[in-house]
Design a protein around this nucleic acid. Structure first.
Length: 426
RNA sequence: GGAGAGAUGCUGGAGCGGCUGAACAGGGCAGCCUGCUAAGCUGUUGUGGGGCUUACGCCUCACCGAGGGUUCGAAUCCCUCUCUCUCCGCCA
């Protein structure tokens, strides 16, 4: 969500931002917002003036009653004022609701560092690490490897829950567990506090981080509750909303959390070439990193967050590249975003395992995450950031496919071996 | 799931239709005082919206869990919801 005052005073600048995102700079919603905002303020002035009158009259009525004098004339007079105030309040709440609705759907303006571009073809590779190792045999895709090693069972997962789910078995399950422990240990050693949080979240939390109202159809909703609960698509939701509606002390920042949760995504309409294997599943495990920082620190913290996520794939010795998203491919809530893409030998392509974003105050304004820069200073919105550190299934894909041996076994990277308890599978 | 109790400012805790943006106590901050520490005295202390102003700022409205309602007027009365606590039931 954007500051209404910013939009009011910098509408042209914001139109340029929309244009960079490949959207219509004459966005009718923006025009409606600005008009409605002016009307709302106008109505507010009138309502407040009447309220003032009402408050003064109430005082006088109270005084008259105490002196046992007649106040009927004044009361009768104030009845019409009360009716008018009621009308205006109704109008204001309708206007406010629409203002909020529009405000919640306008995207974050891209940061100045974000390159121009229309889609993923204009993203910029800013870093490459490691070399995809050439294999002297035809590499197998992970679903074949998983089946042969008896560690992945997709047909039975489909029987239990439907397509797009996975059953991991034996060393497959153990590999997942060891990866989660390994990643969490790395991050806590680097200064993150580990959090275990609910995997369901309410509507307010989902709006706070920006999954709602625009992306409701991407999520699973839990039925049978008086209020709405959604299965979280990422631990970003609980970790960021930990501090919703709080005013934090400056000393408590930066806050750095890491947490493992299952993640649930409908992935509606994603059927096609990406659905084979476990590349795109409805439920997957992920370790997420979240930071809540003072506004002036967020871009430095963004770089170090990226480094923390990279650290994981480096230790696992997976070739990867870092991609800076162009304005047209940027997430609607992000101001700047890097993706980490790891090499997958069986697929012969790069797979996104982490998206590292700086949201500036976009989320904190929605969620009400503020801090006091100095003991007596006015509260300001904190900046929030997050990044996967990292998602498990694609890590599995890459580890299996890249490290497969001619004899059909798979080597486990030395850094992970102590967690996994062996140096190979099969 | 059933029954009951409750939710007030940074904290504890009063208020139960007008004199309450909120007693009282504690904490924080500022000043005074005290040769140190402690104590004492005085003042001050929230958030958000809007308007005015070159500016320090001034005015005004809202906020006593959330949302509705009654009323000239609501922290106080009514309804719905959320959360917390106690008891019963159920359950891994």
């Amino acid at each position: 969500m954007l500051d209404l005052r910013y939009l009011r005073e910098n509408a042209d600048e914001y139109r340029q931002a929309l244009k960079r995102r490949g959207m219509d700079d004459q966005n009718p919603l923006l025009d409606e917002l600005l008009t409605l905002d002016a009307e709302w303020r106008h109505t507010t002035v009138e309502r407040d003036r009447l309220r003032e009158e009402q408050n003064a009259a109430s005082k006088r009525i109270g005084a008259l009653k105490r002196e046992r004098k007649n106040a009927d004339a004044l009361i009768a007079e104030m009845q019409s004022v009360a009716r008018r105030v009621h009308e205006l309040d109704k109008r204001l709440s309708v206007q406010r609701a629409r203002l909020d609705e529009i405000q919640m759907t306008l995207p974050n303006p891209p940061h100045a560092d974000v390159p121009d571009g229309a889609d993923e073809n204009d993203n910029v590779v800013v870093k490459e690490w490691g070399e995809p190792k050439p294999l002297d045999f035809e590499p197998l895709p992970h679903w074949t490897l998983g089946e042969r090693l008896d560690i992945l069972d997709l047909p039975r997962a489909a029987k239990i829950a439907g397509s797009g789910f996975a059953v991991l078995k034996g060393d497959g399950a153990r590999l997942t567990r060891s990866l989660l422990r390994f990643m969490l240990d790395q991050h806590t050693q680097r200064g993150y506090t580990e959090i275990w949080a609910p995997a369901l979240a309410n509507r307010a939390s989902m709006s706070g981080t920006g999954q709602l109202p625009k992306f409701e159809e991407d999520m699973y909703r839990a039925a049978g509750h008086a209020h709405d609960l959604f299965l979280i698509p990422t631990a970003e939701v609980p970790l960021t909303n930990m501090h919703a509606d709080e005013i934090l002390d400056a000393e408590s920042l930066p806050i750095r959390y890491c947490g493992y949760t299952p993640c649930f995504r409908r992935e509606a309409g994603a059927a096609g070439r990406d659905t084979r294997g476990i590349l795109r599943v409805h439920q997957f495990d992920k370790v997420e990193l979240v930071k809540i920082v003072p506004a002036d620190a967020s871009y430095d913290e963004h770089e170090s967050l990226l480094a923390d996520a990279e650290h994981i794939v480096q230790l696992l010795e997976i070739p990867y590249r870092v991609v800076l998203m162009c304005a047209g491919d940027l997430d609607f809530k992000g101001a700047k975003q890097y993706d980490i893409e790891i090499w997958s030998a069986g697929e012969g392509r790069w797979l996104e395992v982490s998206s590292v974003s700086n949201f500036e105050a976009f989320q904190s304004r929605r969620a009400g995450i503020r801090y006091r820069p100095a003991p007596r200073a006015k509260p300001e919105y904190a900046h929030t950031l997050n990044g996967s550190g990292v998602a498990v299934p694609r890590l599995l894909i890459s580890l299996l496919e890249n490290n497969q041996q001619a004899d059909g076994s798979v080597a486990i990277p030395p850094a992970l071996a102590p967690y996994f308890g062996a140096e190979r599978i099969g």
